[in-house]
Amino acid sequence: MSALTASWSKSKTTQRRLRDALAYTLLAVGFVWFIFPLFWVIMGSLKTFEDFNQIPLRTFPSALYFGNYPSAWTSVPFGRYFINTAIIVSLSVVGELISASIVGFGFSRLKFWGRNFLFMVLLSTMMLPFWVVIIPRFLLYRDIGWVGTWLPLIVPSYFANPVYVFLMRQFFMTLPPELDDAAKIDGCNELGIFWRILLPLTKPALATIAIFSFINVWTDFVKQVIYLSQDSTYTVAIGLAFLRWQIAQGDPVPGLLMAATVFTSLPMIAIFFIGQKYMVRGIALTGRTGT
C-alpha cells in the first residue's frame, strides 16, 4: 500500500517536473521573442559604425561606444521636443483625471433620466473609428485657429475620454453605497460626496488612468503629425520620425537611430516599472488595456 502511494506520488512529481520544464522552455522562448528586440537596440546604440558592418554580425559591441547618444540628441532638437511633449502630456493627464472622475462618478453613483442609455452610447463610441471623425475635427479646429498649436492635443482631454470614464465607473462601483448614504445624512451634497468621500478612495484608479494616458499621449503620433506644423511645437515622436527620414535619405547610421529609440523610450519604460501594478489592476477591472 505504502509502496503504491510512493510510486504514485513519485510519478506525480516527475509529471510536475516535466510540466515545469516545459513551462520554463516556453517562457524562455517568449522572453527572447518579446525582449530580444529591445536588447538588440540597446546593444546597437553602443556600437560604432564599423561594428555594424562586421561579418558575422555580433550582438555585443566591440567596445562600449557612447558617441551615438550625443549625436542622436543633437541631430534633431530633442531637448526642445522633450520639453514640448512633457508639457502636452502633463496638461492632458490632468484633464483626463479631472474629467474622467467627474463623469465616472455621475455614471456610477447618481441616478438620472437617460443614464443607462447614455452609458451604452458612451461604450459604443469607443468602437467608432478614429479616421471617421478626424477630418471634420481638423476643420473645426482650423476654423477656431487651433491648428498648429497644442490645443487640439490637450483640450479634448478635459472633456472625458470614454475609455477612462468606463474605468472610473467600474472602480466607483466597487465602493460600498453605504458611504454615500452616511455622507448624505451628515449633510453632504453630491459634490461633497464626490470630492471629500469617494475621490480619495479612487487613487488606484486615478493612478491607472494617469499611466495609460501618459503613455497614450506620449506615443500618439497621428494627432501630433496632423495638428502640428512648426518646428518649435514638435514632439518627441515627430523628432523620431524626422530622424528616420533623414537616415532613409542619407547615410545610414543605425547606431544613431538606435540610440534615439532608446532614450525616447525611456520615459515609457520608467513609467511602466513604476506603475505596472496599477496597469495590471486597471486591465483586470475593465477587461481592456486603456488604449
Partner: peptide, 16 residues
C-alpha cells in the same frame, strides 16, 4: 514591455 513603448519608437526598433 514592448507594448508599452508603442508608436514610432517600436516601429523604428523593428526597422533595425
Amino acid at each position: 514591455m514592448p507594448s508599452v513603448i508603442g508608436g514610432v519608437g517600436l516601429a523604428l526598433l523593428w526597422t533595425t
